[in-house]
Design a protein around this nucleic acid. Structure first.
Length: 451
RNA sequence: UCCUGAGUAGCUCAAUGGCAGAGCAUUCGGCUGUUAACCGAAGGGUUGUAGGUUCGAGUCCUACCUCAGGAGCCA
């Protein structure tokens, strides 16, 4: 599989064909679709960067080339040489007048490519995820995901944060609540897959000042919704000598940066995935500052909404917000909304109480617009040794396992804060997807671990 | 864990308790501008599994299995 390419041909990718108009180029890719109209063939090639339609008039090419292409099976791998020609009839503006073809691997007639251009069900597509990835829409989503992941790291790299990734194997639950994936760790010990690196980045923040982590996270929760995976990627910044006000500013500038990066690079991909001009305009509005709503204000909004019949169940003072509540709240704003100062009683043990109202925690949830719900959860952390120890005991957590964490408050404790952002939920929001299973190459969900 | 819904051709779906069907895909034939191309033909079935009711079950009943959506919990 090391053929000699025609010396006249430039090697190109489909995404860059506009720069080769009028030239003869060679593409390496696959046959995505094939239409025939008598003595005229319309093959569509894909190469991972896009698709391009070829034109093959029987009279214009050698007999052998025409017959080979006419009978070629979908998703066969190939190298195709042709002249790039602008054509108003083509969706991308360009077509390829095919001059040469080299089939690398022909898909057998007996086992045709299972994913067709027609509609498929979720079960079938997920069972064939390794092949589903080849479709233009899924490829576009993964390109956008890659840019989001890069931007998610780039922002911190450019703002003085040091990347310090925490361990994936952990000795205990960070928050003591979520379901964990458990495994044997030699002899008598158990290890668990991390559900959050937060406690560890608190330690590195007190060593390096501003830090972040970026990696996979695992939750064995039996959640079956469009927002849940058992394995997902989380980015978690942590800042020393900073509190909730600085955290809120970070959230809004961070998300604005990521959205701007995607818009700059992927308007075409976003359209292909399903965002029209009107919904692209919604993303354009994602710029700091974001609206800030306290828990108490949000509660009042929900009570009013219930009175008007806009929310089915009445929100009760002190309760957390349910999914329908979050959907309503986020629908009231044209950009992500930051809801802050939830009741301490319903939040994690490590969250700092608000000095102006100790019943409230210095925390924030960022809800994405268009009904996508929570994408960021963050807080200022308890920095007082005695208070943290008391909280750990109140939550019934094993004090011994948290000695190292308490040490952070014994040796030069400072106010510090951070958040966790789920990458898949951000991708789902920006791409306007129905379900997070399409945001990651191989989704891990409650009922599926194949392929 | 709970609630709701769905399992019929490779895929997406039809079928009043009464002969198992269509579109797409595949194979064959036709068509020089198709955009999920179109036109004609052929092949393709243990109706998720196990019981039950009935003269007769894809359809009704019971249990189980699988999947999906939602709740709770969360990013």
């Amino acid at each position: 599989m090391n053929p000699v390419l025609p010396s006249t041909a430039v090697i190109a990718t489909i995404a860059t064909l506009a720069a080769h108009e009028g030239q003869t180029v060679t593409l390496a890719g696959w046959l995505y679709n094939l239409r025939a109209s008598g003595k005229l063939l319309f093959p569509i090639f894909r190469d991972g960067t896009g698709t391009i339609q070829g034109i093959v008039p029987k009279a214009a090419v050698p007999e052998q080339l025409f017959e080979e292409l006419k009978n070629l099976t979908l998703e066969s791998s190939l190298r195709v040489t042709g002249r790039v020609r602008a054509d108003a009839r083509a969706p991308s503006g360009f077509e390829l007048d095919v001059e040469g073809l080299e089939v690398l691997e022909r898909v057998p007639d007996e086992t045709p490519f299972p994913i067709t251009l027609k509609e498929h069900g979720v079960d079938f597509l997920m069972e064939h995820r390794h092949l589903w990835l080849r479709t233009p829409r899924q490829s576009a989503i993964l390109r956008v995901r890659a840019t989001i992941m890069r931007a998610a790291a780039e922002y911190f790299d450019d703002h003085g944060f040091v990347r310090t990734d925490p361990p994936i194997l952990t000795p205990n639950a960070c928050e003591g609540t979520s379901e964990l994936f458990e495994m044997d760790y030699f002899d008598e010990d158990k290890a668990y897959l991390t559900q959050s690196g937060q406690l560890y980045v608190e330690a590195t923040a007190l060593a390096l000042g501003k830090v972040y982590s970026f990696g996979p996270t695992f939750r064995a929760e039996k959640s079956k919704t469009r927002r849940h995976l058992t394995e997902f990627w989380m980015v978690e910044p942590e800042m020393a000598f900073a509190g909730l006000p600085e955290l809120l500013e970070l959230c809004e500038h961070y998300l604005s940066f990521i959205v701007a990066k995607v818009l700059k690079k992927h308007r075409g991909d976003l359209k292909l995935i399903g965002r029209d001009e009107a919904s692209l305009a919604l993303l354009e509005q994602v710029q700091a500052p974001f609206p800030r709503v306290s828990y108490d204000e949000a509660h009042q909004m929900l009570v009013d909404a219930h009175a008007k019949g806009l929310v089915e169940t009445l929100h009760r003072e002190g309760d957390d917000f349910g999914s329908p509540d979050e959907t309503y709240l986020s629908s009231q704003f044209d950009r992500p909304v930051m809801i802050h100062r939830y009741p301490s009683a319903i939040k994690a043990f490590y969250m700092q109480p608000d000095p102006e109202n100790p019943a409230r925690a210095l925390c924030v949830d960022v809800l994405a617009p268009e009904g996508y719900g929570e994408i960021i959860g963050g807080s200022q952390r308890v920095d007082d040794y005695d208070l943290l120890k008391k909280r750990i005991e109140e939550h019934g957590l094993p004090l011994a396992a948290f000695q190292w964490y308490l040490d952070l408050r014994r040796y030069g404790s400072v106010p510090h804060c951070g958040f966790g952002m789920g990458i898949e939920r951000v991708v789902a929001w920006i791409c306007k997807l129905e379900h997070v299973r399409e945001t990651i190459p191989f989704a891990r969900t409650l009922n599926r671990i194949y392929p």
